[in-house]
Design a protein around this nucleic acid. Structure first.
Lengths: 390, 390
DNA sequence: GACTCTTGGAGAAACGTATCTTCAGACCGG
DNA sequence: CCGGTCTGAAGATACGTTTCTCCAAGAGTC
């Protein structure tokens, strides 16, 4: 009795109803484990006849390779983390704003298309959950400065791509909109529509989006010679947004045009305007940043800035997977092919060419509707800003 | 030279920069890997001194246990699949409707609280992606009849809990609203507000929600003696929804009250009413099913039915994890502790007590606003229907 | 002083796959 | 007839844990 036969025999007596393993397939097909593995994965040198026979047997037995074993062996899980930011008490904002929802959807779809699946992981989740999952890489949305999580992941060799230009933490790559350009575009658009004093509804948090947008506004005010007129509120609190919108329109130096940085600002501003008897767009021009199409149906329809979350999600995931597959093939070839000599120059992961990580800027889209035009409404689209490496 | 020393020596010379493994920790702490494992996992019998020393060394080396190895050994990945339905061309609806978004958020949060993470997997995704992931269980949203995916998962021993009463496929458990009761509630509410002829805006798809709701409406019409007045459209197409809303109000037998089954119906109906010069609620009473709070701010505010997706998401996940942990401890004890004798009664997974899978009905909430009341608006909440096992 | 318990911990066997290495035989030119 | 190449496939090892089994030494007991 050979060792193999003994093993398979022991298996079959001690556990009956378990899932079929590769050994069972091998035994049933009368070949070795190696042959089964090769046949199923399209590797090795096997005649087509053997290959198809093995496949057939595997199918018949309902064989499903163990993902865990494969991951352990190959070092690849096919899993990508999707980190979502946490605001306040609520577990996480995920889908709080349409932006996240759209972005996550596109990211999931893009990942799936390349054979990866997404694991949703709030940044606030317990460390043990994080480290209990074999991730090939991580997408992180708008990491705060010095994010310890990102830093640890990056240091432990997991590629990290961020949506939103990262502050101080090292990432493999990042993707963001050109927020400054977008804000300047809008301010210019409002000025052309006749605005004399443009106000801003912004947030109190320190994420990149809020910061860059606000700075762009303040810089523009300074250049143009307008006194800044803005209200800031905690963006995660919708009720605070309504209050802030009201406050903005109640000021003695009430603006005649407002840009709101967050999704629900449009309706809030509209409601506030109504309360103060302001007609939009006649007395007040309105633009807000939103991915929602409800603003096409409001009275009047409101001009919105889209950050194109779908494009961003897709790009982020593709960059990440490029890094995952690139890293692995690169070190694999260098370490495997060379032998002892290579030790003099230990392969550095992703550190080759130390410099700022490559960033990509994505164009935004201004969807012009009635709320920001004093003349007849007409729908235009801003020319796409050329995306470029930075 | 002991075997262990030899091994660790070989390791350290051949691979320098790799992550620290449990062996490295053991060597550094001067103990065996068993002790390290026990110390870190709180098992075995070890004095606190040893435990803390090992923990400290592990911390110093930045040791992170390999999730893949752990999963392979324990058979548990800590991963739960979240299947989302696919409509039409788009990859998947996930977050298309606020319902899904809320439900997914609650599910993620609940899972995380119990140490599990969620993997988002469209039902349409390639089979190889599914089988490449080690899932401890799956949440499936509104599975169609005879869903092959669900059937295979269930048969291969993976617990499956569905959101939405499943048609013909076997599941471990399911959770759903009492859609029939909810619709009857609304029809009654509208009747009390003075409606003489109630119309329905429904979908053409065959999912449980659409089917049960429509049937409840038709049954009610039959009982009350009203001729049904409804329009159906493909729910995944927002444009078709607007058209259907228009069509419904353009009919010669125009209803004086409408219930819309899908989220955007409220605004669509409002717009259509405006087009036909109908005042809400004076000429037309309106209710729609939605989780969005934009309907609190419309003119007039619209009464909505909430399906309480958060509760459903939480419940679904908790049921699933209960099943996961229950199953495992059960078979583990039976198979491991008994030895040969147990073979006479092979452990059956989740089949004990063959009958319909346990279902849970969750109460819905009717948020009454101005659109469905002819008198002064007042905000009430329907008494929670008693949830019960079926 | 022989005995049982208890404590602290080591050894080694899985878990199920992928892959590196080896090997037997067929084929082939000289 | 013989060394070499090519084909088809088997053996063995490693991936990094967890856990079952077992052992040595000290503590208590009669």
């Amino acid at each position: 009795m050979t060792a193999a036969a003994n093993q398979s025999g022991r298996r079959s007596t001690s556990r009956r109803l378990e899932r079929a393993g590769i050994r069972d397939v091998a035994a049933a097909a009368g070949v070795s484990i190696t042959t089964v593995s090769d046949a199923l994965n399209g590797k090795g040198r096997l005649p087509d006849e053997t290959r198809s026979r093995v496949r057939e047997v595997a199918e018949r037995l309902g064989y499903r390779p163990s993902a865990a074993a494969r991951t352990l062996r190959t070092g690849r899980s096919g899993l990508i983390g999707l980190t979502v930011t946490t605001y306040g008490e609520e577990p996480f904002t995920f889908t709080e704003f349409a932006y996240f929802a759209e972005m996550a959807r596109a990211a999931t779809s893009a990942a799936l298309g390349r054979g990866f699946a997404l694991v949703v992981l709030p940044a606030s989740s317990r460390h043990d959950v994080w480290s209990n999952i074999a991730l090939d890489g991580t997408v992180v949305i708008d990491p705060p400065d010095q994010d310890p999580l990102v830093t640890e992941l990056y240091r432990s060799g997991v590629p990290v791509v961020s949506d939103g230009k990262p502050g101080n933490c090292p990432v493999t790559a990042w993707v963001d909109n050109d927020h400054e350009a977008a804000v300047l575009d809008i301010l210019e658009h409002l000025s052309e529509a006749g605005a004399r004093r443009i106000g801003l509804l912004t947030g109190t948090s320190t994420d990149t989006y809020t910061r860059l947008s606000t700075e762009a506004y303040l810089g523009w005010c300074h250049r143009v010679g307008q006194e800044p007129v803005y209200e800031a509120y905690p963006a995660h609190d919708p009720a605070a947004g309504a209050v802030a919108a009201d406050r903005l329109l109640a000021r003695p130096d009430r603006p005649d045009a407002v840009y709101g940085l967050f999704d629900p600002n449009g309706t809030d501003l509209l409601a506030a305007a109504r309360r103060y008897g302001l007609r939009v767009p006649d007395d007040l021009l309105l633009v807000c940043c939103s991915e929602s199409d409800v603003y096409a149906g409001t009275e009047p329809p409101i001009t919105t800035l889209s950050l194109k979350p779908r494009k961003i999600g897709t790009t982020v995931v593709n960059l990440l997977i490029d890094a995952i597959e690139g890293v692995d093939s690169g070190t694999g070839a260098a370490a495997g092919g060379r032998g002892e000599g290579a030790r003099l120059f230990p392969p550095r992961f992703r550190t080759a060419g130390t410099g700022p990580p490559p960033g990509t800027l994505m164009p935004t889209e201004l969807i012009v509707r009635a709320s920001s035009q004093r003349r007849s409404p007409r729908r235009t689209v801003s020319p796409p800003r050329t995306p470029g490496k930075v």
